[in-house]
């Protein structure tokens, strides 16, 4: 069974009497351990798709099963629990709480999960070690570079051992070199068996992932899996011809 199953999912907004279909009848399966990118120009519906997949939003129509649980009809409280336990987020603007230090930021999901102080500390330090940020645990986010902040944010996303990690333009606010190291980190995490989904408008970044899903006008325009078609044999950090064609 797939980790994520979308069947006929639509998200419809009403703006001034006009019906806007941000997502239109989307079917999608994602298996555990996949490294996927969702690409598409702004307004294509990729953010909406990520919000629904990330349980931040509920679809208007259709069925969405995450890890076998139906999400479309879940209550806000259940969604909060699922976000806490099964989903990790990495944002473009890092979104660390400025008043807390790195360690406290990473501990935060476990605070809402109700873990004890010692367990929180140990697991947070483990997560920070994974992203090589354990020596910055007591720093405030403002004292760190962008790349370091994003590493801390990734540690926070991983700390509750989620089923899937969503990264929304994770390199959008970083210079290209730092961005590349972050992408390498994601690749490394993927190799360890984690399910990761990158959301980006940049085909260069999407080229890193074996599977690429392109969204246009609320529909899946392309769903290419390099592993299945044998075109992808490892991470590429250069622009591939095939990707350019899709952009």
């Amino acid at each position: 069974m797939a980790l994520i199953e979308l069947r006929g999912v639509s998200k419809i907004y009403h703006l001034g009497g006009e019906e806007i279909r941000a997502l239109d009848n989307v079917d999608l399966d994602i298996n555990g351990g996949e490294f996927i990118s969702i690409i598409g120009p702004s307004g294509s519906g990729k953010s909406t798709l990520m919000h629904i997949l990330g349980c931040l939003d509920s679809p208007t129509k259709g069925s969405f099963k995450l890890d076998g649980t139906e999400i479309a009809t879940a209550s806000a409280r259940e969604l909060a629990r699922i976000r806490n336990q099964k989903i990790g987020f990495v944002f473009q603007f890092f979104n660390l709480l400025p008043k807390l230090n790195v360690l406290q930021n990473v501990e935060l999901p476990m605070v809402y999960a109700g873990c004890g102080a010692r367990e929180r500390r140990e697991r947070a330090m483990d997560a920070l070690r994974l992203v090589e940020m354990d020596n910055r645990a007591k720093h405030r986010p403002m004292q760190l570079s962008g790349g370091q902040q994003q590493r801390a944010a990734i540690a926070r996303a991983l700390v509750n051992s989620p089923k899937i990690v969503f990264a929304d333009e994770p390199t959008g606010n970083l210079d290209s070199h730092t961005g590349e190291t972050i992408l390498k980190l994601f690749h490394e995490l993927s190799r360890q068996g984690r399910t990761i989904m990158l959301v980006t408008h940049d085909p260069e970044i999407a080229a890193v992932t074996p599977r690429k899903i392109e969204i246009r006008d609320g529909k899946i325009a392309k769903n290419v899996d390099a592993k299945l078609s044998g075109q992808h044999d490892g991470p590429k950090f250069a622009v591939g011809a095939q990707v350019q064609e899709t952009a």
């Binding site: 806000a76 909060a80 976000r83 987020f89 979104n95 709480l97 935060l108 809402y112 999960a113």
Partner: peptide
């Protein structure tokens, strides 16, 4: 507002 958004995204409920 942003802080509250972050807290909710990582699993804070209404009650929290």
């Amino acid at each position: 507002v942003r802080e509250i958004g972050i807290r909710k995204a990582i699993g804070a409920t209404f009650f929290d």
